[in-house]
Each structure stands twice: as structure tokens, then as C-alpha cells.
């Protein structure tokens, strides 16, 4: 099995639905340690992504990534817009002109996205950011592909690792973003960016299953 434009479109529509359903919860997580807008901003951005994909129907995964990235960059604002926008822009560039992505191809595109997020946000593992969910997800994905797993199995491994990474942010003291101004008071709260990233990989796994 491979990831076609249709598969990736279904993934993003599913992510849109899950973000919308959990908009309130993501915003509450952000109220505790940030500026109380993560769910609202992500829901607005993914709604715009769904409209864009319906209106333009990209021909390749590469075109899809670039369209999704630019839409998020121009509609989300704050820190999430550039971070998720960069993720999908780099995903699109890495996917190139391929008609569809096999397991290693999807992994390479996702990792290019992660590298973009790290470069943009200068976040490292343990800073209490979305990187805490995304980096383990990609490591798990690559390990699964290297040991001969299918694309669906690799995506499931990534989803499980992203969820574990999300949970690992709870005790951490934030070192990046607005939560960092709270110092020790940022501990004992889940990072909202890691929570939305865990949804991103959960919906990918469900779509490829």
C-alpha cells in the first residue's frame, strides 16, 4: 500500500474533524500555560485547509503539502501557524513530483517536516513542545520501516510514540514559547502543541489502516 493524494486528503480531513471535536480541550490546555487560543487557531486553520483541498484538488502529494502549508501559514497566526505550516511546506518539497509515496517516501517527507519544525522553532526534545511528540513518532516510523513493516504498521507505531511523547510533556518545565515565562509553574500541564501533534499521527494511522 502507498499514500496517494486521496489518502493524504482523507488524513487531513480526519485531522480537521478531530481538531474541531477537541477544540475546547486544546484551548483549555493552552489556557493553563499559554495564551488560550491553540484549539481555536488550529480549528480555523484546518477548516481553511479543508476548503482549499476541496477547491483546488492537488495532483501530487508534493502539491498537497505545499497547499496545506501555505494555507496554515496564512490562516493560523501565532506560533502554531509557522510551525505546522513549515511542517507541511517541507513535507511537500520533500515529496517532490512523486505520484504517490511508499513507506520510505512518506517517512522521508514527514521527517523533512519535522526538520523544518525544529529549524523554525529551535525546539529540542524536552523543551515541552510539539517536538516531544513529533520526533519520537518519526523515530518509531523509521524503525518500523527498517524492520520491514508496512506503511500502515509504521504509521501505527508513529501514532503510539506520538501519544507517549505527548504524555511525557506533562511533568516538564517549558523552555520555549510563551509557557516558558511561567518557569516552574508550567510543570504538571500537558503541552497543547504536543497534544495536537499526537492527533495528527493518530489520524494518519487510522487513515492508512
Amino acid at each position: 500500500m502507498t499514500a496517494t493524494v486521496q489518502t493524504l486528503t482523507n488524513w487531513l480531513l480526519s485531522f480537521r474533524d478531530v481538531v474541531e471535536e477537541n477544540k475546547q480541550w486544546l484551548t483549555e490546555l493552552d489556557s493553563a500555560i499559554g495564551d488560550a487560543d491553540h484549539g481555536i487557531n488550529m480549528a480555523r486553520g484546518m477548516s481553511a485547509v479543508a476548503d482549499k483541498l476541496t477547491a483546488t484538488a492537488p495532483a501530487t502529494p508534493g502539491e498537497l503539502g505545499k497547499a496545506v502549508g501555505m494555507t496554515l501559514v496564512t490562516t493560523v497566526g501565532g506560533a502554531s501557524g509557522p510551525l505546522y505550516g513549515t511542517f507541511f511546506l517541507r513535507f511537500g518539497v520533500a515529496a517532490g513530483t512523486a505520484e504517490e509515496l511508499d513507506a520510505p517516501g512518506l517517512g522521508a517527507a514527514l521527517r523533512a517536516g519535522l526538520d523544518g519544525v525544529v529549524a523554525r522553532g529551535k525546539g529540542e526534545i524536552g523543551d515541552k513542545t510539539m517536538v516531544d511528540a513529533m520526533a519520537p513518532a518519526l523515530d518509531a516510523y523509521d524503525a518500523a520501516v527498517a524492520s520491514g513493516s508496512s506503511i500502515a504498521e509504521a504509521a501505527s507505531a508513529a501514532a503510539a510514540a506520538a501519544a507517549a511523547g505527548r504524555d511525557s510533556t506533562v511533568p516538564l518545565v517549558a523552555r520555549k514559547g510563551r509557557a516558558s515565562y511561567l518557569g516552574e509553574r508550567s510543570a504538571d500541564h500537558m503541552d497543547p502543541g504536543s497534544a495536537s501533534t499526537a492527533f495528527l499521527f493518530a489520524t494518519l494511522a487510522e487513515t492508512l489502516r
Binding site: 501565532g78 506560533a79 509557522p82 505550516g85 513549515t86 523554525r120 522553532g121 520555549k176 514559547g177 510563551r178
Partner: peptide
């Protein structure tokens, strides 16, 4: 110097 402002201006 706010994370969002800095990243959006960088882009």
C-alpha cells in the same frame, strides 16, 4: 520578541 511574532516575521 514573542515566539509567534518572531517566527512569522522570519517566514
Amino acid at each position: 520578541n514573542y515566539t509567534g511574532d518572531v517566527m512569522n516575521f522570519e517566514m
